[in-house]
Write a protein that binds this DNA or RNA. Structure first.
Lengths: 192, 192
DNA sequence: GTCTATATAATGATAGAC
DNA sequence: GTCTATCATTATATAGAC
């Protein structure tokens, strides 16, 4: 593995473990088994490492094909999508825990992340309508209500894992399933 | 105002503006118009300042009387409660943005905060049943479902403002009302 | 209680040898 | 590309005068 990759992998692990503030470039270099000077050969500073990790995250979201293409989607597919979302968020949990701070201190990072996120939100909108067209759910006729339901589901997706952590709960398969259940509960009254 | 109060007020403002990581004890002292040495006379370190701010927040939650005592509650009272919650969270927004990190690095702070939060959650449970008894809402018979609904409402309460900030939206009365509407949307199918 | 001065350590970042 | 050595800057924390 290249030094650059080692730095990024190590930084992700440390950020997830201790938060970006508590991790210095020296810590990253030491944990990656390289010298501080070498780290600065590959990255200008910590901000650039964070930016690159966000870039990885963005790529993950962008290349992510949530639904099976060979058949009409059923309601269980929605659960699978949400679970995949949780997995990705957990992989980059430092980003979601510190989102407000990280986005504020770096305009470029904010622009890129929000653009990808916006596409994701639109994709989720499409997804719900795909399920609706396939007869798996019955979206309310009032688009305002449908939008509110989507917004609630999105918020749960994005913050459920953080909420678990605040509660001091282990994040595991079972707890992720509980997060899926909550979203199901929101749309339950609108199931076909 | 005493130096101690000045330090706490200034720290809260700076933490809310820039995040705890970007604010040093020197910054706080300078903005408060006192010397660094004086700050260390009143507080052992930044952690203790954060701890004291959390103590204030805890006191705010504990002394908080959400419902009018002189009459049976109506559904609009629930909206008022949620709005008050948003106001308090916004006042201490640094805490909610960085909750996972802050709770992890200070066991005493975590214990106190979680105890107060747990009582708040139980109070919210009570509240819903008060509304149910007063006929303002009709809670589902299945307690599991009722608990899930409560959990969803709680999550929206706690993370709606952060979600707004991630979206780059101004946090104002209208947006808080939207957050109230989302919670209303969750319980809408269970209204009397 | 409050200040100035200062010690100690950590962090971010660069220069130059290999 | 990678290292060692180094440095300027900042942050934390304390001592001692007033």
């Amino acid at each position: 593995m290249s030094a650059r990759e080692k730095i990024l992998d190590t930084a992700l692990k440390l950020f997830n473990d201790k938060g970006t503030a508590a991790v210095s470039t020296n810590h990253i270099a030491e944990a990656a088994g390289i010298s501080p000077g070498n780290l600065y050969y590959h990255f200008r500073n910590k901000e650039e490492i964070i930016r690159e990790l966000f870039q990885r995250l963005n790529t993950t979201w962008e290349t992510y094909q949530p639904l099976p293409q060979d058949r009409a989607p059923i309601i269980n597919d929605l659960e699978a999508v949400i679970k995949s979302n949780y997995q990705i968020i957990w992989q980059y949990r430092f980003a979601y825990r510190e989102l407000v701070a990280l986005l504020r201190q770096d305009a470029e990072l904010r622009a890129n992340f929000l653009a990808v996120r916006q596409r994701g939100y639109e994709g989720f909108h499409q997804l719900l309508h795909t399920f609706s067209d396939a007869g798996a759910i019955r979206l309310p006729d009032d688009p305002q209500i449908a939008n509110e339901l989507q917004e609630i589901c999105w918020l749960i997706s994005e913050f459920w894992l953080t909420s678990l952590e605040v509660n001091g709960r282990k994040v595991n398969e079972a707890e992720m399933q509980r997060g899926v259940n909550l979203i199901r509960r929101v749309i339950q009254p609108y199931l076909a």
